[in-house]
Write a protein that binds this DNA or RNA. Structure first.
Length: 362
DNA sequence: TCAATGCACGC
DNA sequence: CCCTTTTGCATTGA
């Protein structure tokens, strides 16, 4: 028997949370912002609600540009990530009760295998999922969009298309007709770069994409991605719904008050992020054996350097190594100015003889 | 095999 | 006209 998979996506999540908690925002454009602290209004839009989107405001655009696009009644709020995380957990705990197996994809997305819950029946799935949406709404005030399909890729696309507050079921026999007319970038994993190279070849829709051989795709995307795209375009990319494994790396990045090539400045401004990253590692019960410096230059290029550390290295030890790494980066080009700086912990090793390395053999 | 880079995707 | 943050993965080049 084929699977029944539901993909749940909380609508414009962060902005929706603000709307739910502040009824006076009703009907107004709401923009949740990541302020970088460099100047007043420097930073980007994290999420915008639908009234704001009508003016062309969306995730990723500069706050300044959003202010120009929107009328005076628009409301700009700073991101409250911890709060959204709490609400997300609440929602996920509800969703979990509706699933045979669930995978939390991100703060606002989850994939549920509901095959047994609905006896493999897509008609039943529609009602079942509608009930789930209602419970989430009653418990939290939040609306979500849900796609139901035989696998997670198609389910995600169905959820995307149904937004906001949507519910779209795509039965097995409907999958091909559902996918064919969609633009190639509807497929998760095909972003702007991949879509652009495909467009150059005249490939615009999933139907067009299906005409390309595995070999052609391989030349465009490399082996792994080609295989994924090949099957995804046919609605046949399938994998079991399994919980997300623990993170393999922890990183923190900050925007510097001003561009600099002074290592002391960089380290001073980065220190809080380092402490924060170490706290996250502690919470994960993980110890890194590598640490990396991430430098973003004034022209927004990214340069990275890594070094080995003693797993469980202290804050001071980490700062010392980071200082060396940033020095290396700056020395490679005397003209470099850093705009942003970050730290990355990776290559985790865990205690008690366990190994996080997948290739580990007893 | 390792280090560095780039793409994707999310908000 | 301005440019945040986090993680995973694949490719590339040595």
């Amino acid at each position: 028997m084929g699977k029944v998979v539901a993909f749940v996506d909380l609508d414009y999540f962060f902005a929706q949370v603000e709307e739910v908690e502040k009824p006076e925002l009703a009907g107004k454009p709401v923009v949740v912002c990541v302020y970088s602290g460099r100047t007043e209004d420097s930073g980007v839009v994290s999420t915008a609600n639908y009234p704001a989107r009508r003016y062309g405001v969306k995730a990723g655009i500069p706050i300044k540009r959003a202010k120009k696009l929107l009328p005076p009644e628009a409301v700009f709020l700073p991101i409250r990530l911890q709060h959204y995380t709490q609400l997300s957990r609440h929602v996920m705990s509800i969703l979990d009760r509706y699933a045979d197996r669930m995978r939390i994809e991100s703060i606002d997305e989850a994939v549920l295998d509901i095959t047994n819950r609905v006896g493999g029946d897509f008609e039943k799935a529609a009602e079942y999922v509608a009930g789930m949406k209602t419970e989430v709404l009653r418990a939290t005030g939040l609306r979500c969009s849900v796609g139901v399909a035989p696998n997670r890729v198609v389910a995600k696309i169905a959820a995307d298309i149904s937004k906001p507050d949507g519910l779209r079921v795509v039965k097995s026999e409907e999958v091909e007709d559902f996918l064919s007319p969609l633009p190639v970038n509807s497929i998760p994993g095909i972003g702007s770069k991949a879509a652009a190279s495909l467009a150059e070849m005249g490939v615009k829709t999933v139907e067009d994409l299906k005409q390309l051989s595995l070999e052609t795709l391989e030349k465009l995307f490399g082996r792994k991605r080609a295989e994924y795209v090949y099957f995804a375009a046919r609605g046949k990319y399938d994998e079991p719904v399994e919980p997300r494994p623990p993170p393999k790396q922890v990183s923190r990045i900050i925007t510097l008050k001003r561009n600099t090539r002074d290592v002391d400045d960089v380290i001073a401004e980065l220190s809080r992020a380092v402490a924060d990253g170490l706290a996250r590692m502690e919470a994960l019960q993980a110890a890194a054996s590598r640490v990396g410096a991430v430098a973003i230059t004034s022209d927004l290029r990214t340069i990275t350097r890594q070094a080995e550390i003693r797993p469980g290295a202290s804050y001071e030890e980490v700062l010392k190594i980071l200082r060396k790494l940033f020095q290396e980066i700056l020395q490679q080009d005397a003209r470099l100015q850093l705009r942003r700086a970050g730290v990355r912990f990776s290559d985790f090793v865990s205690q008690a003889g366990q190994s996080t390395l997948s290739g580990y053999i007893e």
